[in-house]
Design a protein around this nucleic acid. Sequence first.
DNA 1: ACCTGAACACCGTTCAAGT
DNA 2: ACCTGAACACCGTTCAAGT
Lengths: 193, 193
Amino acid sequence: MATNTRDALIDAAARLLDTGGPVAVTLREVGRQAGVSRGAPYKHFADKEALLAAVAARELAALGTQLSEVTAPGGRHNDLRALMHRYVAWALAHPERFRLVFAAWSRPLEELGSAANSARARLVEATAAAQRSGQLPAADPERLSALLQALANGAVELALAGHLSPDGKGRASPDDLVDDLFGYLRAPAAGTQ
Amino acid sequence: MATNTRDALIDAAARLLDTGGPVAVTLREVGRQAGVSRGAPYKHFADKEALLAAVAARELAALGTQLSEVTAPGGRHNDLRALMHRYVAWALAHPERFRLVFAAWSRPLEELGSAANSARARLVEATAAAQRSGQLPAADPERLSALLQALANGAVELALAGHLSPDGKGRASPDDLVDDLFGYLRAPAAGTQ
DNA sequence: ACCTGAACACCGTTCAAGT
DNA sequence: ACCTGAACACCGTTCAAGT
């Protein structure tokens, strides 16, 4: 699938990550699956953390294009709630990638940092658009988007840890909590009936 | 400090956890710090995960007593916002313990499960009390408390990952987001001016 | 009942050497 | 420029043997 060694290493790492988290990503097995020796990965990545950061950056970019498809159609169908549901669905479907993207890194990692920044910018813009259309109350869009993302992330993690229903059978699901928040946010908006 | 080997092992594990996360908790070093051989921990814990779960359960219990001190004084001063701020402060002060408590475990772990349940019950009760005092709108207390906890957890994790300010200088802090949520929640409450 | 110490099958990372 | 293969200092876990 991968045209070069570097991509093959990232592919293998992503595969191993999904099966058992960062612990399952051993550079030796990564090299094995990419068809190189165990020393080879170190010619492409400084260490294991750098390889994981490359996986996270790639996943964050892929998520970005997925989410822009939600807002794209027509250019005006900017339903932020649908975007958040799509985001939650991605996180629940790929728990390890989600956790990796929001992991605490031991040092700043170039590629991942810029991917995270552009993802944040996208969310802030979508939030501002929702405010313009009256879906959300007037407030600092940076701060309001942080509230939305914090809730979504927290809800997903509670669900992943088993403290919430993933699908809404019986107990509340992450999607339910997102809807609840949008409900509470709608009320204070002045002049929207 | 510890009177028996089992407690000494948990103490050592907690110490190592704080310094470098679960990866830093090696059973060999735990044994070393507890003054026993490397095989000894296996007489007290099935494996590394069981030891970590014991650490998490102990921390969750300690957190519970900390939080009950916030609501205790007078028995009527049940300010849920203050409770949430205390919770956030704990999480920011002990990131690794916070992450461990909400980690995804490979199997159900007795001791941790019951500690988590009683912590949840406490939060739900505090939420219901806040509803009775008019601080929060009428809604299923289970679901409303999940909303609060999801936001707090998500905000803390965003802060720990560097996507939020930990102390509110410049960008929003977790405490700011908690306050924002309480603000949005107050509005829809009927009959409270 | 609890502990020791060797053993097995792994790791991340480094480095001389090859092409 | 990229890769190999051995080497070093670690792991988690098991198990016979001791007290």
